[in-house]
Amino acid sequence: MLEFKNINRWFDGPEGKVTALDEVCLSVSPGEFLAVRGPSGCGKTTLLLIAGGLLRPNTGQVSLDGHDPYALSPEMRSKMRASMIGFVFQQFHLIPYLTVQQNILAPSLALPAKGADQRAKELLSRFGLDDRAGHVPAQLSTGQRQRTALARALLNKPKIILADEPTGNLDEGNADIVFGYLSQYVAEGGCVLLVTHDVRAAAHATRTLQMVDGRIIQ
């Protein structure tokens, strides 16, 4: 589903070149929950942005469902992202003035579909958010916000979910709920690439890789 071949990415900083990814190779297949663990600043978010078609690598090849997203035009890459990838972030990134239901429907702005409203209702029900459908994010608990973000990620039935520290702001109970949902998604045939420093992730992942200073070491 997702494959990285010798990916290198560096940034020019005030103190010279900073290497974020160094010859990274990995692959994620359907039905796989891959957790990449590592300390802050080791390049996890860079890895996820490149996987999501948001940050072009300096060298190396990315393949998403058999296609190189960086060979596409920005518009086509946006469409590919909308149809194939679901994103979950540590900070949730919900739109503050939209209700829970409208936030879940936000991906339909990029990929309008007839059954989007019905799908949103199903997701509200599945994530236990029915009674919060008309609330705005500021009226939700952190757990509810992350469940809303997960539901949003699943609206367009993506082939892969890219999750960046999704449990970073959650207590243990809510973190388990999120991992549970991600595991359920994988069991239904999806795949997850999770980057985290949370040791609990290993318990839910089908495979765990360690990342240090931009390199996959295991």
Binding site: P74, E75, S83, A106, A110, R152
Partner: peptide, 10 residues
Amino acid sequence: GVLRTLGVSA
């Protein structure tokens, strides 16, 4: 940024 990430076009 989030909308663009979700695939909303420029």
